[in-house]
Design a protein around this nucleic acid. Structure first.
Lengths: 229, 229
DNA sequence: GCCACAATGTACGAACTGGTTAGTTTCGTC
DNA sequence: GACGAAACTAACCAGTTCGTACATTGTGGC
């Protein structure tokens, strides 16, 4: 029996309540995200999404207006989730070199663990980023990522460890490219070369390569030998 | 008036011939490729493709069976075209360092010039590469790319210029990642950071960065200073 | 000249799909 | 306990979309 709380009169009784707007909304988003990530915007079917939902099709239109509204919400949700996950990264206390290594490893693992997010970004790029553009929410989520890199880079510069003249945003671009591609193009790449790029061993190699590549790009040549044993 | 050619009896008269199977086929493929690259497999409309064709919808089904057959043909066509273009790359006579630089620059430019191809590959990856897998044609087109890199790498090793222990296929993977991402994710990246990554100046920077990154990854640290002024 | 077959055009239909209409139930509040 | 707003359902609709049946024309071989 649930605790009889005479002190909480205004609260809802979870057992009998059948209306649950926030829950319904969330449930729809989750299902929709999966379906959009799997099939794309035009490929996903509203009826299919509705069927997999605890709610009905009408509810989708009730909360999200139309298919595109639902898609945009799913896209924003994906970005929010991922950026929240990235907040867990802690590199404040690390040396520039170790911090950078950690950042790349984290990005690599993180992308790998959030394939649905990667697929949503792919799909959004197919649509020329037109929905992301329309989203006010997402824009400011990504600025912090750059701040991290800038901080590390400038500290590394100060220590005389890094090359000068590099742009933090461009470094972010390159890290993203290497980590993103690993997930986004695994299918065709594996197929093309008849070699599975998804095995744990292969992933380990690619991860190592990615770290090496970024560090060797940023480190001064003189510093490479001792920094990368 | 067209030249009355009494000497060419066996050849077809292009002026009056109304049946042109190969031409029709090719025309359909071209239109379909554009539509698929723009809208994806489920997003592209057969009727739309047919309308933009010199032929009719009936012809699409006559030659390609169904929508998926048409998509697969378009995909194969994209790979064939691009690989044929790549055959124009000539690095045989170059030094390992110059050859590698040339290869990266070429790949960067080439990807940039063939956005439709990139988009087709993105779309195919959304579909988990299931159509590419089914294609016997495409598999062997890509092996030569690796052979080029292997040759360069081994020559560079022989000259004591490159680090040992690297895998040509993995080098190809990294070059692809950097060059592919530049086209595939430009939209969301630009949108996210409110900065246009498609300007000629930006492209120049990214291209330079890409070359630097690959070379610094492969070169021995001692060789970097003199190799990259 | 004639025939078999390849190439092409027209019109149509069955199934699907995004979106809506009309109506019911739940629930906080007074 | 009545009332109105919010949450929710079922059935339906109109436009779309892939695919086909049927008819017609061109072409090469005999």
């Amino acid at each position: 029996m649930p605790s009889t709380g005479p002190i909480v009169p205004a609260s809802r009784k979870p057992s009998t309540r059948r209306q649950d707007p926030e829950g319904t909304r969330q449930n729809i988003i989750e299902v929709a995200s999966q379906e959009f990530a799997l099939n794309g915007l035009s490929g996903a079917r509203i009826d299919e999404i509705a069927a997999k939902t605890r709610a009905s099709k009408r509810m989708i239109y009730y909360y999200f207006g139309d298919k595109e509204g639902l898609y945009l919400s799913a896209l924003e949700n994906a970005y929010r989730q991922v950026r929240e996950g990235e907040a867990g990264l802690d590199i404040e206390g690390l040396s520039p070199l170790e911090g950078l290594r950690r950042l790349v490893e984290f990005t690599f693992d993180h992308h790998h663990q959030h394939e649905d997010f990667i697929r949503m970004v792919m799909i959004e790029n197919i649509h020329h980023g037109q929905y992301l553009e329309r989203s006010s929410l997402v824009r400011d989520l990504n600025v912090t990522a750059i701040a991290h890199i800038r901080d590390l880079y400038e500290r590394g510069l100060g220590e005389g460890l890094f090359r000068s003249g590099l742009d933090p945003l461009e470094i972010h671009w390159q890290i993203s490219a290497l980590c993103f591609f690993n997930v986004s193009n695994r299918a065709t790449f594996s197929s093309l070369f008849a070699r599975d790029f998804g095995t744990p061993e292969m992933l380990m190699r690619l991860r190592h390569n990615t770290v090496e590549m970024v560090l060797r790009y940023i480190l001064k040549p003189e510093a490479i030998a001792e920094a990368l044993p």
